[in-house]
């Protein structure tokens, strides 16, 4: 799709023409490094793997991805450029996908820049690089899930701060839905299929399987469906909020 590519190019250009990209990348690298070495006890563990690096990604993404996604549509609605965009001869869904892919590519770039860690662990020992590659892919796919939720919620409002908070909260619920804290709230009164459904929606559960090096089709399908559903709703929200 030609127009999709044009949108991706513009969006990626917009990231790097403002300080946003550099601030994000520096903070992402600094925080993921700090978490890995200090909280994750990378050296003390004495194991040649990147588990201490990847285990923090769901939490890191929880507030870094909303910071990327909040501007996707809220900014366009605020400045009125959404009117320009939607009166160009291109369907809404092409724009939605173009913007999403651009943001995803940007996160992929930030994630790719953590490669010194991978070199470090290979220098220090002999890790299972298959697991590491699977973990990188899993992390990226999970980031896509967060991002689709963020893109969708960014279209709901003109206010980027509201978009940020909504996204962080909804992502948190998706992240935690398998955890005791949320589950115990439903235990006792909700039927067991609801509990199971909730548990199966958990980002954490699906991510942990991938990080162990098991690329289960179900996990990939899960994140794929999250992306699909939220982008579909995203396009619908944009059509509904035109002019408001």
């Amino acid at each position: 799709m030609h127009n999709c590519w044009v949108i991706i190019k513009r969006e990626l250009g917009a990231y790097f023409s403002t300080p946003l990209a550099y601030v994000f990348i520096v903070i992402f690298l600094a925080m993921s490094g700090a978490l890995t070495f200090f909280m994750g006890a990378f050296f003390e563990r004495g194991q040649a793997d990147l588990a201490s690096f990847f285990s923090f990604h769901p939490w890191l993404y929880l507030f870094l991805i909303p910071a990327i996604s909040m501007r996707l549509w809220a900014e366009e609605r605020k400045t009125g450029t959404v009117e320009l965009l939607l009166t160009l001869p291109t369907p809404t869904w092409v724009v939605v996908i173009g913007k999403f892919i651009a943001a995803w590519l940007f996160i992929a770039i930030a994630l790719g820049l953590t490669f010194p860690l991978w070199i470090t662990v290979n220098y220090l020992g002999t890790p299972d690089n298959g697991v590491i590659i699977a973990s990188y892919l899993g992390s990226l796919v999970m980031a896509g899930g967060y991002l689709a939720i963020g893109s969708c919620l960014s279209a709901v409002t003109k206010n980027q701060v509201i978009a940020f908070i909504l996204t962080a909260v909804v992502c948190f619920l998706f992240l935690m839905s398998g955890v005791e804290l949320v589950q115990s709230f439903f235990q006792g009164w909700a039927p067991s299929f609801v509990l199971e459904a909730l548990a199966s929606m958990s980002f954490l559960t699906h991510f942990n399987t991938i990080v162990r090096g098991v690329i289960d089709l179900r996990d990939v399908v899960f994140f794929g469906s999250i992306i699909g559903v939220f982008l579909y709703v995203n396009a619908a929200v944009i059509d509904l909020t035109r002019g408001s």
Partner: peptide, 23 residues
Amino acid sequence: PEGAPLYGDMTTTGFLNFIAEIR
């Protein structure tokens, strides 16, 4: 459109090229 909304982060040429390409 009313108020001529534009992508402020782009240069004039960059913006016109973007619209031309999408057209």
